[in-house]
């Protein structure tokens, strides 16, 4: 069986937080457990806020969010029409630095990479398309 959910989210923080709740609720409806719901929320927040803060798109612009559960793989796909940008290409933060030298930010994409089975970016039809996959225990 294949489960799918699609949502359009405006590029505005408050819309993002409402969308997080909707997508996670949907994942619960797919039968996804609490731990996996948290990983989904984590990646979704990072990627959507990244578009809000860095894409330069107006708050009226829309991001497409798709969630598909098929053959034991949960796939999140986020599509935006901003300038070409691969967030997954950002360098990993140096986690060995002493606290005085640690950057405050830079962890978000590191978490997306660290907590997923696969993540990928492509430029397709003038849009940034980011996919994040998790293997779901059946």
């Amino acid at each position: 069986m294949v489960f799918t959910f699609n949502l359009k989210v405006k590029v505005a923080e408050q819309e993002v937080f409402e969308a997080l709740d909707q997508v996670v609720l949907c994942a619960a409806g797919f039968g996804i457990d609490d731990e996996q719901q948290n990983l989904l929320r984590l990646s979704l927040e990072e990627l959507l806020l990244n578009v809000c803060h860095h894409s330069g798109l107006p708050s009226s612009a829309v991001v497409d969010v798709a969630l598909v559960l098929r053959d034991g793989v949960l796939r999140l796909t986020i599509t935006d029409s901003g300038p070409s940008f691969d967030p997954l290409a950002l360098a990993a933060p140096d986690l060995d630095l002493p606290i005085e030298q640690r950057q405050i930010g830079g962890l978000g994409i590191h978490f997306v990479r660290s907590t997923s089975a696969r993540c990928a970016w492509q430029r397709l039809d003038g849009c940034n398309v980011v996919e994040v996959d998790w293997i779901i225990a059946c």
Partner: peptide
């Protein structure tokens, strides 16, 4: 705390820098 994101951890790192 049933959910924390990188933004939440930034707050923890800020607190750590502040006390140190």
């Amino acid at each position: 705390v049933d959910f924390i994101s990188s933004a939440g951890l930034r707050a923890v790192i800020s607190l750590l820098k502040l006390v140190k």
